Amino acid sequence: MGPVTTLDAAARALPLLDLTSLNDDDTEERIAALCARAVTPAGSVAAVCIYPRFIPVAKQLLENKGVAIATVVNFPGGGASAAEVAGETRAAVAAGADEIDVVLPWRDFMAGERTVPRDVLRACRDACGDGILMKVILETGGLADAGLIEQAGRDAVAAGADFLKTSTGKLQPAATLEAAAILLDVIRDCGRPVGFKAAGGIRDTAGAAAYLHLADTVMGPGWATPATFRFGASGLLDALLADLGHGATGQKPSSGY
Rank of each mutant, 00 (worst) to 15 (best):
S21Y: 11
T205N: 07
K197V: 02
A198R: 00
L148K: 14
E28F: 01
T27Y: 09
G131W: 07
C49P: 04
Y51T: 07
A181H: 15
E113L: 02
S254R: 11
C190G: 09
A215K: 05
R192V: 11
A97H: 05
D126V: 08
A9R: 11
E150W: 02
V218A: 01
S255Y: 02
V85F: 00
R30A: 15
A179T: 05
G2R: 12
C35L: 08
A10W: 09
V120N: 02
T89D: 05
D162P: 02
I182G: 09
V4N: 03
E63Q: 14
T176P: 12
D8I: 07
G232Q: 02
N64H: 14
G131C: 10
A239N: 13
V45G: 05
L148Y: 10
D185S: 13
D185Y: 00
G131S: 06
Q172G: 00
A181V: 09
S21I: 09
A33W: 13
K165E: 08
L16E: 13
L121V: 01
E29H: 03
E150P: 04
P76T: 09
I55M: 03
S44H: 09
I132M: 04
Q151A: 15
S21F: 10
E113M: 01
R188C: 06
L244Q: 08
R122P: 00
G79V: 13
D25N: 14
P105K: 01
S44W: 00
D162F: 01
G207I: 08
G235L: 04
R30T: 15
A36E: 14
V102Y: 01
A68I: 00
R114M: 06
G2Y: 04
E88T: 00
L212Y: 06
V120W: 02
I50R: 10
A208F: 00
V73T: 15
G87R: 11
A199C: 11
V93M: 11
G96F: 06
A9L: 06
G232W: 07
T140P: 06
G245S: 09
T166Y: 12
G200S: 02
L164N: 05
E99K: 13
T228N: 12
C35S: 10
I50W: 13
R90N: 03
T140A: 09
R114Y: 09
R230S: 08
L22M: 09
T225Y: 05
D8Q: 15
D101H: 05
Q60K: 15
T225R: 12
S254G: 12
A91C: 08
